[in-house]
Design a protein around this nucleic acid. Structure first.
Lengths: 236, 236
DNA sequence: TGAAGCAAACTAACATGTTAGCACAACAGT
DNA sequence: ACTGTTGTGCTAACATGTTAGTTTGCTTCA
């Protein structure tokens, strides 16, 4: 059962070879093209990309520090299984960072920044009317990215991304719930409204309500796909 | 002026060669044995450790993702200079993570955990009486580590550490202020008191007061050591 | 039949050879 | 003197050779 995984061509990305291999593999893992628990055949990757072991090894070690693969010394590299505790931790970290960001932005926002957020919100409504849920999801992510960029901190976005990546991967398994997008949009409105009136505390609360909803969706997952999860470390 | 930097022997650390080289270099950079802006001579490192380029390259790439060195492609690797904005970001991130941690722990703590914290606090008092400021500093860090470990999240501690590492490096330049340790101890007491009565909001506030004090010390630094800082990106 | 031992095949980790881009100094032309 | 050019020596990035530890599965012996 050595299912060959179709990897995105390196030309789609920029940077060093190692960087591009990293991007391509990461996308494949998050999109569940690799099964959690599956062994990563380095030779296959080398063959598909036409590169040598060095950039691949480099990419894998970066994926390991993201927690997306587990490197077993002198043995092999495996796509990490889901772990409820890691998913909860990812959600906790994202919540911590998003709350701090929105609190700060509520206090420091300029009118121009507020305008951008409000434009995004109206755009979301427009996409919902058209039933473009994929577009809505992109606009959703854009909104979070906007808020984070308004803090002026560059690393923040990266950290949130890597914290969240586990949850995001698990989210691929959850079927979209009818009405969830509308509900989500209303929560976005609450957040931006609080930012508009510079109420930091309310912005925090609104963001917290929003983020915690996302987590609740994932919690039900283990029962449906137990084989993708690591057993929650019961002794032997 | 190729000042030879004394690196800690690899035997002091555990893990793969690359891991140990990473630990040793990181310690040297944080302790300012390397001057910010200084070029890292890979050959010197190789000679001192008696290893090959692979583990050193691996270690350097990890230091780069910590923000401790800047790798310039096809040119060289340099110990990163201080940047006020990066220091502020590090402080922001640590604050975000520590606040979330203490808020959670205030709600979920067991009596046994509380006991550990209170024991730590009394130990701090004892060290202060003896005038052992270095020991106090260690106990201080232990307390923060304790709180983080009580969340049950493993990655949290690592993230806080890497967020803070820039600030910590800068802190090496700040002379200890008389009476600061006592003040710090009182702030620690406030935090643990709030945890004792499970007042999450007060715990957050106490922790915030505490963390922000540390940052204030660093802010004055650029005037004293301008050569260690990157100019705050004024055009050309 | 089952367990213990052994060897072959695979892997990550480490070592080393090669390539190509950048910086800086010496030098030539004006 | 000043500018433009070339070449030398450095580097990171990439390719490939080597080593040593792990897994797997076959074989052998109780």
């Amino acid at each position: 059962m050595s299912s060959i995984v179709e990897l995105t061509h390196l030309e789609r990305y920029t940077g060093s070879l190692a960087e591009r291999v990293y991007q391509s593999l990461k996308a494949a893992i998050v999109q569940l093209k690799y099964q959690p628990g599956e062994a990563l055949k380095k030779q296959d990757i080398i063959d598909q990309f036409g590169v040598s072991r060095s950039p691949v090894a480099d990419a894998l070690s970066r994926l390991a520090s993201d927690g997306l693969v587990d490197i077993v010394p002198q043995s092999g590299t495996y796509v990490s299984r889901f772990s409820l505790s890691e998913i909860r931790e990812g959600a906790f970290l994202r919540e911590a960072l998003e709350l701090a960001a929105v609190e700060r932005v509520a206090q420091t926002r300029t009118d121009e920044q507020l305008k951008q957020l409000q434009r995004n919100i109206r755009f979301q409504a427009l996409l919902l009317e058209d039933g473009d849920f994929q577009g809505f999801h992109r606009a959703d992510e854009d909104m979070h990215a906007l808020i984070q960029s308004f803090t002026g901190f560059r690393r923040l976005r990266l950290l949130t991304e890597t914290s969240w990546v586990q949850v995001n991967r698990a989210r691929q398994l959850v079927l979209p719930t009818p009405g969830r997008a509308q509900e989500s949009h209303r929560e976005h409105q609450d957040i931006v409204s609080a930012i508009a009136v510079q109420d930091a505390e309310e912005a925090r609360l609104a963001m917290r309500r929003h983020v915690r909803k996302l987590v609740a969706f994932v919690e039900t997952l283990e029962a449906q796909h137990p084989e993708l999860f690591t057993p929650e470390r019961s002794p032997t």
